[in-house]
Design a protein around this nucleic acid. Structure first.
Length: 234
DNA sequence: GCGACAG
DNA sequence: ATCTTGTCGC
C-alpha cells in the first residue's frame, strides 16, 4: 500500500505538487496519543551532483537520549533538489532504512520542515503520513512562515505565521546562534513538538538526535567514497 | 518583472 | 547538501 507505491522518481514536479495538495487533507495536527519512550532521527547525505543518497536513522531512549540503534541504506534518486519538494528526493531512501527497523520508534524527528511548508507538506509531514508515526520537523533555515526575531538567549522562541496560520516556532536553541525552526509533522501538535525538541538540546544549536543522524550518514558516505576508491586499485 | 527558496 | 581557511564575536 502506502510504502510500496513510492515511484517518486517517475513523477514530474507538477505531479508531486498535486500529490502534496491531495495528501495535506489527511494530515492530523493534534496531541500525541501515547507516551514517547523511543525516538528516532533521520538524515540524508549525498555528494553534490550525484544521484546516490546515503540515508540513516538513529534510535534513542527518550528523554535520556541513550543511543539504542543505528540503521543506514544507500539508494539512487533522479529527483532533483527543488525547494518545497525535498520529500520526493529523500523519502525513498529513508523508507529503505525504516523497513530495516524491527521495533519502530514512538516518534521521529526529521531534518527539515513539517507543516511549515507552502502546502503544509514538508518532509517530516510526508514521512509521518507514509509511516503513521508521529513526526517533528526541525529545520536549520526557514521555508514558509514569518516571525519576529526571538530574544538572544537560550530557549527564547517566537511563533511563525504563514497565510494567517501559526505553522511553527523559531527556537533559539543556543545563545548567539540563529534559531532553528520547529514544526509538527503529523500526529503531534506544535506545543509538544517544541517541548520534545527542547528536551533534545545538548549544548549545540542542532538538537542531539539530528546531530547524530547527520554524523551517521556523513560517515557512511565518506566510507563509501573510500571503498569505491579501493576497488579502483584492482 | 524581481526576490525568496527546507536539504 | 558539500567543499573549505581564516576570522570575528561572545
Amino acid at each position: 500500500m502506502k510504502l510500496n507505491s513510492l515511484n517518486y522518481d517517475s513523477l514530474s514536479p507538477a505531479q508531486t505538487v498535486a500529490l502534496q495538495q491531495e495528501l495535506r487533507k489527511h494530515i492530523q495536527i493534534r496531541p500525541l496519543y501515547k507516551e514517547v519512550k523511543i525516538i528516532g532521527s533521520a538524515d540524508i547525505s549525498f555528494n553534490k551532483g550525484e544521484e546516490t543518497v546515503y540515508a540513516g536513522i538513529v534510535l534513542f531512549k527518550y528523554p535520556e537520549l541513550t543511543v539504542i540503534g543505528n540503521y543506514t541504506a544507500k539508494a539512487e534518486t533522479k529527483f532533483p533538489c527543488i525547494s518545497g519538494l525535498l520529500a520526493f528526493r529523500e523519502l525513498p531512501a529513508l523508507l529503505k532504512v525504516w523497513e530495516q527497523i524491527e521495533t519502530k520508534p514512538d516518534l521521529m524527528v526529521l531534518d527539515g520542515q513539517g507543516i511549515a511548508h507552502e502546502r503544509r507538506m514538508g518532509i517530516a509531514t510526508h514521512f509521518g503520513w507514509l509511516t503513521d508515526v508521529p513526526t517533528i520537523g526541525s529545520a536549520k533555515s526557514r521555508l514558509a512562515g514569518r516571525f519576529i526575531e526571538p530574544a538572544n538567549e537560550a530557549f527564547a522562541q517566537s511563533e511563525m505565521t504563514d497565510k494567517g496560520e501559526v505553522v511553527s516556532i523559531a527556537l533559539r536553541s543556543k545563545k548567539n546562534c540563529n534559531p532553528i525552526y520547529i514544526s509538527p509533522g503529523h500526529h503531534i501538535d506544535i506545543e509538544q513538538s517544541v517541548e520534545v525538541i527542547k528536551n533534545c538540546i545538548r549544548g549545540y544549536r542542532i538538537p542531539e538526535p539530528i546531530r547524530q543522524a547527520h554524523n551517521l550518514v556523513n560517515e557512511f558516505r565518506i566510507k563509501d567514497i573510500g571503498s569505491n576508491a579501493q576497488q579502483l586499485l584492482f
